[in-house]
Design a protein around this nucleic acid. Structure first.
Lengths: 166, 166
DNA sequence: CTTGGAATGTCAACAAGGCTGACGTAAATT
DNA sequence: AATTTACGTCAGCCTTGTTGACATTCCAAG
């Protein structure tokens, strides 16, 4: 820690080797990040795409299809395939927009909320363990680097979700 | 680190909301992380799977197929499809193992190395920008959290790559 | 020296989840 | 009245993952 603050060392973190390790860390960590939910989803005949939809609908109840599209960054055809099964299975329901009747505002049913909790419990447990292992200082750095890595459009989406405190 | 020892603050950063923001940060950042290489790959009729193979072959020249399999965490059939096109296109070559002739040790050709550089330049540029924006302190935290998030098996793979200094 | 297992490749079939393109409908906007 | 927006849908394609079965070559151990 101390060496980092001193001028000479401060560029060391931008060496090719450091950058490559960062790239690899992202790769391996993302595997871990998705591993637990994936296992649950497998047993239920769902996939990662369902998880994402359910996550963001839970996060912003009543959001429209086009908002969700913007968040996920996929085509409407792709999203629709997923949403259709979620409707059919009674995990998500769509309510016609009040002011604009073309909109379909998405909500989780109780069943959908239960799945969301199950997935999110697993994922948060891992995140909590990682945070705990690394400490609060590290968590802040983690968030800063990730945020800086996002495309500007996606950063806006990210910051628009609930409190962006922290 | 010091605050971590003190009781009061140490629970604050582990609220559900903090954990959810961390999860979302991973999601959005990973999109950015892959965006630049993906654009290059698209124009060349390759995909993310090719990128990964090329990356790790460059990283550990002469590694065997089974090692690569372990690193990537996919099936041999899946990897083989990718390796075959890389052989055919003259990006990767396999040399029979010296001591164990069953092994095929993988190496990039000059052409393969050129592709690797092109992909890795793009990806490192983004990583560098993010590191620079966040600062050395943050980078260290970033790496610590990611490492703690990995599955143990994958953490071993990660740490086995070149220097694990940092 | 034979035999079992390891390292690798290959064929076939399938699924998830991306994509494009084209078309349709209802509601809002101009 | 005409256009645009929000959404859905059909059809087809691609990449990349999966399982299962089978063949080859070679190392290593009995």
């Amino acid at each position: 820690m101390a060496e980092n603050a001193t001028g000479g060392e401060s560029l060391l973190f931008l060496t090719d080797e450091q950058l490559r390790k960062g790239i690899e860390a992202m790769f391996f960590a993302y595997q871990g990040f998705t591993a637990d939910p994936d296992r649950i989803l497998d047993t239920l005949e769902y996939g990662r795409a369902h998880h994402r939809a359910v996550h963001f609908i839970n996060r912003s109840p009543g959001l429209t299809v086009s908002s969700l599209l913007a968040i996920l960054g996929v085509t409407k055809q792709s999203l629709n395939r997923v949403l259709r099964t979620l409707f059919e299975d009674g995990l998500v329901e769509a309510r016609v927009g009040k002011t604009d009747k073309r909109e379909r505002r998405l909500h989780l049913t109780e069943k959908g909320a239960a799945l969301e909790r199950s997935l999110s419990d697993a994922q948060r447990a891992r995140m909590r363990a990682a945070y705990r292992a690394a400490g609060p200082q590290a968590v802040q750095g983690f968030r800063m680097v990730l945020e800086a890595m996002m495309d500007p459009e996606m950063r806006r989406q990210y910051q628009g979700l609930k409190e962006n405190n922290g």
